[in-house]
Amino acid sequence: MKIEGTVLRGPEFEPVEGRVVVEDGTIAAVEEASVDSDDVILPAFVNAHTHIGDSIAKEAGEGLDLDALVAPPDGLKHQLLREASREEKVEAMRRSIRLMETTGTTSFLEFREGGVEGVYMLREASSGSSVAPVILGRETADAMEAADGFGASGARDGDFSYERNATAREEKLFGIHAGERDATDINPALDLDPDFLVHMVHPETLHLERLEDSGIPVVVCPRSNLVTGVGTPPIAELVERTTVALGTDNVMLNSPSMFREMEFAAKLADVTAREVLRMATLNGARIAGLNCGVVEEGHDAKLLVLDGDSDNLAGVQNVVRAVVRRAGASDVKEVLL
């Protein structure tokens, strides 16, 4: 199989005219050549932080603060999750996964509420989809056993040493929320030596130095942070010190669209479009241990093809900048997952 157009090649997303050769689901070659195509070929997205169970409650909770919205056990999202039937939750998640699939997301890292049953529900919702979730169980060690790892709510909510040690023994992922409301839970989270942190809206100088020393990646969710009123993460400062990926967080608050997250992050932060695209693709893949996120020989052919001659993209002068700041669902021509 050969896909022709402008290829955003390698981790620097160098725009080259040519084709991507795919064999048995793997990128066999990226060939430079003169081609008759306006298409733009880039790696499919990896959404590095989601809570898609919240798909049952889109845009609920107007005017509520973060704790009232999502804090366990009595935040609004948890009330609504308890009230919804299993069938309602599975179908709502299935529809969010379908949206991710049609907009070019190949995988997402899900902090999955509901214990073991929550893990099973997400596996059911994603069955038959080309989108492969990386599921981090919550609430119980059994959920971690059934999932791909454990997603901790935050060091302020308890001691997660047992779960961290268990994931390390089983070589599974351990992620934890940190620095979302304030800085008080960042050091305890870093002390756990997690595989990644989520949010980091309020890091102080010491925390930034520890990140740089440890190399622990961070997933930022700027749209969510703005909606919940906690502020926005210092993306440029984080990027200077460690690997940073993008997530869309709660579907209750924002659509799981990486196009929207990229545009917002790019216009918010003093970082290049290339860095933002890397945050939405390769960096998330690296955190999850996936062999995708880059158009390069030997990597999985998880690709997104945009119509470069769409009314929205025709005439762009900077392809990478246009993909990050301008492209959207209506520009998607083909998704190969």
Score class of each variant (00 low, 15 high):
V271F: 10
A285S: 15
E17V: 05
F174G: 01
A28W: 06
A155F: 00
A44M: 03
V70S: 15
A273L: 08
R95L: 13
E110G: 12
V30F: 02
D249Y: 08
T140G: 03
E91P: 01
D148A: 08
G289P: 10
D213Y: 10
G137Y: 10
I287A: 06
L313A: 15
V324H: 12
P203T: 15
L66S: 14
F196I: 01
A166L: 10
A125V: 03
E180P: 04
V134A: 14
D54H: 04
T242I: 13
S85H: 06
Q79F: 08
V332H: 02
R326G: 03
F264P: 01
R94Q: 04
S34M: 09
L336V: 11
F150E: 11
I97D: 00
T103E: 13
P256E: 05
L282W: 10
A189V: 03
S127K: 00
T26R: 15
V319L: 08
D159G: 02
G104S: 07
A48S: 11
L226M: 07
V131W: 03
G104A: 14
V227K: 07
S34T: 10
I186H: 07
R123I: 01
R181D: 04
P217V: 04
G137T: 07
S161E: 09
S130A: 12
I52N: 00
G25D: 05
N165M: 06
N312K: 12
T272G: 08
D142A: 14
S126I: 01
M144W: 12
E32K: 14
M252I: 11
A84S: 10
G151M: 14
V323Y: 02
I135D: 11
D307A: 09
N312T: 14
V227N: 09
A288E: 15
L304P: 05
D54S: 12
R164N: 11
P188S: 00
A60G: 01
L192G: 00
H299G: 03
Y120R: 02
P188L: 00
S224I: 04
H78S: 08
L64T: 03
K172T: 10
D193N: 15
L190M: 13
V30C: 03
R274C: 04
V335F: 01
E12Y: 10
E240W: 14
G114K: 02
R98P: 08
A143P: 00
L122K: 00
R95N: 10
P43K: 12
V295C: 14
Q317Y: 15
P43Y: 15
E12H: 13
E163M: 11
G298K: 02
